[in-house]
């Protein structure tokens, strides 16, 4: 049932470039990229109970690495993309070693501190990152000779990648490993007593989440063809976290809904109000105070109540 719905949704989305103008196509591309990023963070936050405030590190690092290898080393995408994703995954492995010395608020603070270090580095290490000017001059790849220069083609490319990402992450959380992960979220000590290596489960999830955030970073850099230290900032991480929490942590569709909401708000609201960060702050406070479980579970609960009320 839900599989049919997913296929239909996918088909409907595939027609967007045929019916919509460039602005909307680009908007849809941005939503997909944000959704892949939010889904990867959701593995940690929703399924692992590990709230990271530094997940933009992986998106930003991967984008920077891809840009650097393309523009400075002159590598083609067949080399720069895998290298960037590999480097990001390795960095996630290393960050995970440090951050997972703690859980809860300690974990949150360490991930935040680590990402701020990276952000500061992007600003200061001008020789490599071009500092506040950001890195540009990236051209989109041409897989199998198909140019991705147009908005429509890049959307389709993003749709294919994000569908794979969604399928893989869905598989991950419904697998035996995913069940162990959710067990370590709910009862870590009991899981250890049952023979599950809680630390390793968390670390592998951290690495996997870093990998997919790295993939999102590749989509990001080829979409914008530009990268700036802001992508590594605390507000980037916070936007991802807000997508997850606003949509519904620990659900599959929640982070997608949250990402869509945030991208749309950012595009429309910021056209009228200049104060995106303030708006972001207010949404944060509002969501936490009003619908802490997120939009998708919240709506589901509301619909359930209405349905019961009808009978």
């Amino acid at each position: 049932m839900s599989r049919i719905a997913a296929v239909l949704a996918l088909l409907a989305m595939a027609t967007i470039p045929l019916v919509a103008g460039e602005f909307y196509i680009n908007l849809a591309t941005q939503i997909l990229i944000a959704a892949v990023f939010a889904l990867s963070l959701n593995l940690l936050v929703g399924y692992g109970g590990l709230t990271s405030l530094g997940h933009a590190s992986f998106l930003g690092f991967s984008a920077y690495a891809c840009a650097w290898f393309s523009t400075r080393m002159g590598l083609g995408p067949t080399a720069s993309v895998p290298i960037a994703i590999l480097a990001t995954t390795l960095m996630a492995a290393f960050f995970g070693l440090i951050a997972l010395r703690a859980t809860g608020l300690g974990f949150l603070m360490i991930t935040l501190a680590l990402s701020q270090v990276l952000w500061g580095l992007a600003y200061r290490w001008v020789g490599v990152t071009n500092g506040d000017n950001g890195m540009s001059g990236i051209t989109r790849p041409e897989p199998f000779g198909i140019s991705l220069a147009s908005a429509g083609n890049y959307f389709w490319f993003t749709l294919v990648v994000s569908t794979i990402a969604f399928a893989m992450m869905t598989m991950f959380v419904s697998s035996a490993f995913g069940s162990s992960l959710q067990g370590t979220r709910d009862q870590p000590l009991r899981m250890a007593a049952l023979g599950h290596n809680v630390w390793l489960v968390r670390w592998l999830t951290f690495v996997y989440a870093g990998f997919w955030a790295g993939v999102a970073g590749i989509l990001y850099i080829y979409y914008h063809k530009y990268i700036h230290p802001t992508s590594l900032s605390i507000s980037s991480s916070a936007e991802g976290l807000l997508s997850v929490i606003a949509g519904g942590a620990g659900t599959l569709s929640g982070p997608i809904a949250g990402a869509a909401l945030l991208v749309l708000l950012k595009n429309y609201a910021s056209a009228y109000v200049e104060r995106w960060n303030m708006l972001l702050g207010f949404i944060f406070v509002l969501i936490v105070l009003v619908i802490p479980e997120g939009i998708v579970p919240g709506t589901r609960r509301l619909l359930g109540r209405l349905r019961r009320g009808d009978k």
Binding site: A176, S179, S180
Partner: peptide
């Protein structure tokens, strides 16, 4: 099942639905 998984190598499998 979580108890059984604890001692089963399948607990590492992330590619097959539980």
């Amino acid at each position: 099942v979580l108890s059984l998984l604890g001692l089963s190598p399948s607990r590492w499998n992330a590619l097959r639905p539980l």
